[in-house]
Design a binder for these strands. Structure first.
Length: 271
DNA sequence: ATTCTTGTTGCATC
DNA sequence: AGATGCAACAAGAA
């Protein structure tokens, strides 16, 4: 589920505990989500420290604690964060529970365990946080940078390219489809064949979808309007909100992809 | 029962 | 060397 805006939404779930002290960190050591870190390091980073602030970037979150300690969370496919009353017993898929001084339980829940917890302590940002690509909504995301990236991935379908986090941080399956639909580009179009006008539309659509998603879903997870492809992409017999024509679905770049064949015509990307 | 899934990684192949 | 494609990871829903 979690892409850019959903991650921003979940990040704020732990906000009620900002300023509170973590009194205990309960880790299900068997959980795959904690691969690569030691439970004791995570406990050292969390226990006895106050939660100062949190960040979201791409599909990741970071929670900053006193003393330069960081806890990183990637929600994977099915992860979520919850803030529960402190006496709540952890469920089967609650892999990390932070108990706070004011009686809250900050829970990382992830049935499918594709998510990941990281921790770090030191000066400045942890390397895994600093390595995240600059946001699509930042000035660094220029049409020229987009063009250069498409050239390098010339033989891949646009859909597969938009899922590459090193250039499109936070874009996931539904956002990629939404972007291509708004830009009027076919998901199977080769990245290397995108002409200047299509490039400009793709650049604009990327920024627009990020902005809209953060405003609508990131803020309070409201339902997106029916004018988005989002509301129709899984509907049986769903129709394109702009052309009223049928929507097609197929695997592109290994992922289920939905597009509107009347809007997104293969070959039109060359302009 | 079977097939699907809004993510990432590692490996084989081009 | 770098780009590309795909299986694997695991659980639950349809």
């Amino acid at each position: 589920m979690p892409e850019l805006a959903e991650v921003e939404f979940f990040r704020r779930r732990w906000d009620p505990a900002l300023g509170e002290r973590i009194v205990a960190a309960e880790i299900h050591a068997s959980a795959r989500c904690c691969r690569g870190i030691s439970p004791s390091a995570l406990r050292r980073a969390a226990e006895g420290r106050r939660l100062l602030r949190s960040h979201a970037a791409a599909k990741q979150m970071a929670f900053v604690l006193e003393g330069g300690a960081w806890i990183g969370v990637h929600l994977g496919m099915t992860g979520e964060l919850l803030c529960l009353p402190g006496d709540a017993a952890p469920g089967r898929h609650d892999h990390l529970v932070l108990r706070t001084s004011r009686g809250r339980a900050l829970v990382f829940r992830d049935p499918r365990m594709f998510g990941r917890i990281q921790c770090w302590q030191g000066k400045g940002e942890p390397p895994w946080w600093a390595a995240i690509a600059p946001p699509i909504l930042s000035p660094a995301f220029t049409p020229a940078a987009l063009a250069a990236f498409l050239r390098r991935r010339a033989r891949s379908p646009l859909k597969a390219v938009l899922l590459m986090q090193e250039r499109f941080p936070g874009i996931g399956n539904w956002m990629a489809d939404e972007v291509l639909w708004r830009a009027g580009l076919h998901p199977k179009a080769k990245a290397g064949r995108v002409g200047p006008r299509s490039l400009a539309r793709l650049h604009a659509a990327l920024r627009e979808v990020c902005r809209d998603a953060l405003r609508v879903i990131g803020k309070d997870w409201s339902d997106p309007p029916d004018s988005w492809l989002f509301n129709h992409r899984w509907e049986k017999g769903g129709r394109c909100p702009r052309t009223r024509g049928p929507l097609l679905r197929a695997a592109v770049g290994g992922r289920t992809t939905c597009w509107s064949p009347r809007r997104q015509v293969l070959g039109a990307e060359r302009r």
